[in-house]
């Protein structure tokens, strides 16, 4: 997995926040700038989930149409623009994945190891804090829960698919992930 040496995506980039607010006013120039600034990140997400360029291109277009229509719902008080945009793209990609015939996806391995994205001083302080908190909290999960949660996030895999991949009962997989999620929330809230 190429998960190292990346610039942050979920950072609080206030210029990007402002751009989305301008898009909400119907500003096509701001929308063009937003596309130029974020389309590679969003396309990377669509590709990661779908593993198919044609589908990923189609979903990326769909995502930006949604972003144009929903920009007024963006609340900079609640989330950074990049996190908001990325979530829209990922949700669209997962919707597309679910629309495929069942089992059309080739079984993939469960992510074994947590890639270390490293830290660089130029990262936005607030973002670095949030990210490192998430990383720290993920580190506290046992290996199985952590790798299942990461695989679910990056591949958009369902409980059934995850259970098939690791050859474990569905109930156990659900339980591991649910416990992992609750543990994660508790950790992030402390």
């Amino acid at each position: 997995m190429a998960e190292t040496e990346l610039r942050p995506t979920a950072e609080r980039d206030t210029a990007l926040d402002r751009l989305v607010v301008e898009v909400a006013t119907g500003d096509r120039i701001a929308f063009d700038a937003l596309y130029r600034g974020t389309s590679a990140r969003l396309f990377g997400i669509c590709l990661r989930v779908l593993s198919d360029r044609t589908e990923a291109e189609d979903v990326l277009q769909d995502a930006f149409v949604t972003i144009w229509h929903r920009a007024a719902q963006f609340d900079p008080e609640r989330a950074g623009a990049l996190a908001w945009l990325s979530t829209i793209a990922r949700n669209k990609a997962i919707d597309r994945l679910r629309a495929r015939p069942p089992m059309a996806r080739a079984p993939l391995a469960v992510i074994e190891e947590m890639a270390d994205p490293g830290t660089t001083p130029e990262r936005d302080a607030e973002s670095a804090t949030n990210r490192s908190r998430l990383e720290r909290c993920l580190e506290q999960l046992d290996d199985r829960r952590r790798s299942l949660i990461r695989t679910a996030f990056f591949d958009g895999a369902t409980y059934d698919e995850l259970a098939a991949r690791i050859g474990a009962p569905l109930g156990s997989v659900k339980s591991w992930i649910r416990r992992g999620l609750m543990q994660l929330r508790a950790c992030l809230e402390t």
């Binding site: 979920a10 990377g44 997400i45």
Partner: peptide
């Protein structure tokens, strides 16, 4: 979605 957004940093950008 906000709690999990930090994971996006693990995905490489690809120019469309």
């Amino acid at each position: 979605e906000g709690r999990l957004a930090g994971l996006f940093d693990g995905i490489a950008p690809v120019a469309p």
